[in-house]
Simulated assay, not measured.
Amino acid sequence: MSSGRPFKIPESVLVVIHTPDLQVLLIQRADADLHWQSVTGSKDTLDEPFELTAAREVWEETGLAVQAPGCQLRDWGLENVYDIWPQWRHRYAPGVVRNRERLFGLTVPTAQTVRLNPREHVAQRWLPWREAADQCFSPSNAEACLMLPRFLP
């Protein structure tokens, strides 16, 4: 990378943040018009457990603490492997074209305003799970929203 930053690790998390009544938080990417998504992010190190990546990314992107009262982070035990979009491949080491993504759900007590990192996201909204799926730009994110009812306690 020309910026001197280390390359991204092609192992990431997708965290669907939702309320008990299946309202899903979507956040709008700052670097892509009209791209709404759940929390996503890559591991900081190869040995970082996915659960720690999920907790860190939720905190960095929303200000929500997964261990706060009424919150519950669940590893869905599912992974997606997908091609990294060409416009974002420069963030990865030369020749890296695929990413492995682990899916999580985070139950929060109520829909609430979150603290966005303005370098990453510019808007937020809570939608019923089916509507959230319709708004996701990523097919794997949409599918995760549609699977949400299967992973409720």
Rank of each mutant, 00 (worst) to 15 (best):
26 L>T: 09
82 Y>Q: 12
97 V>P: 00
135 Q>F: 14
60 E>T: 07
138 S>Y: 08
4 G>Q: 07
68 A>M: 07
36 W>Y: 12
107 T>C: 00
114 V>A: 08
62 T>A: 00
66 V>F: 11
8 K>S: 10
33 D>R: 15
105 G>N: 05
84 I>V: 03
131 E>P: 05
152 L>V: 04
60 E>F: 11
99 N>C: 13
118 P>A: 03
151 F>L: 00
85 W>I: 12
151 F>K: 00
120 E>P: 07
49 P>L: 13
62 T>E: 06
98 R>P: 10
79 E>A: 14
23 Q>K: 08
97 V>W: 00
96 V>A: 08
147 M>R: 14
60 E>D: 15
7 F>V: 08
72 Q>N: 12
77 G>K: 05
52 L>P: 12
89 R>E: 02
81 V>T: 14
140 S>R: 13
32 A>V: 15
63 G>P: 00
63 G>Y: 03
73 L>V: 03
114 V>C: 05
146 L>C: 04
117 N>A: 15
79 E>I: 10
69 P>Y: 07
105 G>V: 01
150 R>W: 13
51 E>S: 09
50 F>T: 01
30 A>K: 07
99 N>Y: 05
34 L>G: 15
106 L>F: 05
29 R>F: 04
44 D>H: 15
110 T>W: 15
75 D>H: 10
40 T>H: 09
137 F>W: 10
64 L>P: 02
80 N>S: 15
58 V>E: 06
146 L>S: 07
33 D>Q: 14
97 V>L: 14
146 L>I: 00
47 D>W: 02
29 R>T: 02
19 T>G: 11
61 E>V: 01
49 P>H: 03
120 E>L: 15
142 A>D: 03
50 F>G: 10
123 A>H: 07
24 V>S: 00
105 G>Y: 06
97 V>A: 11
118 P>H: 09
68 A>C: 13
76 W>N: 13
28 Q>R: 13
29 R>M: 04
136 C>N: 02
129 W>K: 02
112 Q>N: 05
20 P>Y: 09
54 A>H: 01
7 F>M: 06
60 E>R: 11
92 Y>M: 11
106 L>S: 04
3 S>C: 13
61 E>D: 09
149 P>V: 09
1 M>W: 13
79 E>N: 10
10 P>D: 12
32 A>F: 10
120 E>G: 15
152 L>Q: 05
48 E>G: 04
